[in-house]
Amino acid sequence: MITGTAHLRRVALGVAGLLTFLLLWKATESFEWVRRGTMPDPLLVPAAAMDELRSGRFLPAIGSSLIHYFWGLGLGTVMGFIVGALAATIRSFDDFQRYLARVLRPIPPLAWVVFAIAWFQVSHAGAAFVISIGVFWVNYFATYTAVQNVDPRYYELAKAFGQGNYLARSMKVTLPAAMPGVMGGVRTGVGQAWMTLIAAELLGVPGLGQEMNSAAGVGAYEAVVVYMLAISAVYALSDILFATVEGRLLRWRP
């Protein structure tokens, strides 16, 4: 149990950490500890944020990013979950996909950009495709491991009470028992998708990454920071949303 004083102390320490970072940042810029003109001034970031908002590019960039983010995240999560669950529960399918997974898994999502552009041009679909690959593997392995680690005593219990067929086992044991591990994978995928998204957009797909790249090209580093903070804010929001869903789904845990 955290007391009120202890909570205040933790908040104060967190704020102190942020302020220390801002001070170091400002000092780096003021004392030119890095090459002159390449370090944005933290005090100018709010003004840059207002400029970007007024420019009419900021909100459309977020909207554009969110489109391929959700498509890529959704596709990668669903496919990773399905393939991981099937591989973990059907021995012949596991054998069938075993070597294929070993060949494809080490290829970084961004290596697929070449084919994404060839197949989908510079588009939402191309970016979503690249994002989905990274998310797929995270969810595939999380689901595979979670399903394999389901306590076999629950399968015995289900069988003893007439729930022994594949569908009943899957719905009444595998899915709920593996859910904490699966949700861990989904949460990692939510973060992974943002990382891949920005990298994919740096190659030309409209969105936050592309705006960041354009701003950097003209030396508007404060604007770059604005987009970085926007990414952070959107990620924090999606993580809070996810934590709410996860808390609801796993409310049975102590």
Partner: peptide
């Protein structure tokens, strides 16, 4: 119907 040594309730069910 079987009653198990460890009770064996599914933790995700009420």
């Amino acid at each position: 119907a079987l009653v198990f040594q460890d009770g064996r309730l599914m933790p995700w069910r009420t």
